[in-house]
Simulated assay, not measured.
Amino acid sequence: MSIRLGLQIPNFSYGIPVADLFPAVKAQAREAEAAGFDTVLLMDHFYQLPGLGAPDEPMLEAYTALGALAQATERVQLSTLVTGNTYRNPTLLAKTITTLDVVSAGRAILGIGAGWFELEHQQLGFDFGTFTERFEKLEEALQIVVPMLHGERPTFSGKWYRTESAINEPRYRDHIPIMLGGSGEKKTFRFAARYADHLNIIADIDLLPGKLDVLRQRCAEIDRDPATLETSVLLTVILDGYGAPSDIGEARSGRAVSGSPEQVADEIKRRVLDVGIDGIILNLPTHGYTPDVITKIGEALRPLVDA
Rank of each mutant, 00 (worst) to 15 (best):
T130I: 07
A68R: 01
Y87N: 09
E250M: 14
V293Y: 06
A29H: 09
L5S: 12
S104Q: 02
N11E: 13
I268Q: 00
D56K: 04
G254S: 10
F135A: 08
P17F: 13
G241W: 06
A244E: 14
D127L: 11
I281Q: 09
G181A: 15
K137I: 06
A35H: 09
T286P: 02
L212V: 01
I238Q: 11
E120F: 02
P147A: 03
L81Y: 11
A29Y: 07
D292I: 00
T91V: 11
V82K: 06
L239K: 08
G129S: 03
A203P: 00
D306E: 14
A108S: 02
L42I: 08
Q217P: 01
D56I: 04
K187L: 10
G279Q: 13
K137E: 10
A108V: 00
I205P: 01
I16F: 10
T83A: 15
D38E: 14
A27F: 09
F131G: 04
Y242F: 15
G243T: 10
L81D: 07
L42H: 02
F189M: 14
G279L: 12
A193V: 12
E61R: 04
A193I: 11
K186W: 02
L239Q: 15
I178L: 14
E230S: 15
D292Q: 09
I109P: 02
A244V: 11
E120T: 02
F22L: 13
T295K: 10
P177I: 13
F191P: 04
G181P: 05
Q122I: 06
D20T: 09
I201Y: 04
V145R: 04
T228G: 07
H45L: 11
R171F: 12
P17T: 10
L41H: 09
V293E: 05
E262Y: 11
L100R: 04
P23Y: 12
P154A: 02
G298E: 10
I16L: 13
N89T: 14
I205R: 00
T132P: 00
D292A: 10
L78M: 09
L5F: 13
P50S: 14
A265F: 02
R271V: 06
G259L: 15
L304P: 03
I144G: 01
E262D: 15
V146W: 08
K269Q: 15
A32C: 13
V293P: 05
G158H: 03
E299I: 07
R162A: 15
G182Y: 07
E164G: 13
A256I: 09
D306I: 02
R218C: 14
A307Q: 15
L282W: 06
I97K: 03
S165R: 11
A166E: 08
D247P: 03
Y63Q: 01
A307D: 14
P147K: 03
P147V: 02
Q143P: 05
K269Y: 10
N11C: 07
D204V: 12
P147D: 03
T99Y: 05
R30I: 12
L124N: 01
G181H: 12
F156I: 08
H175N: 08
A105F: 07
L60R: 01
E164C: 14
C219Q: 03
G182F: 11
A72H: 05
Q122A: 14
E139V: 10
G106Y: 00
R4T: 13
E118F: 03
P177F: 07
D266T: 08
C219T: 07
I167E: 06
D206Y: 13
A265S: 13
L273H: 14
P154N: 03
F156A: 05
P23E: 11
F128L: 01
T295Y: 04
A256G: 09
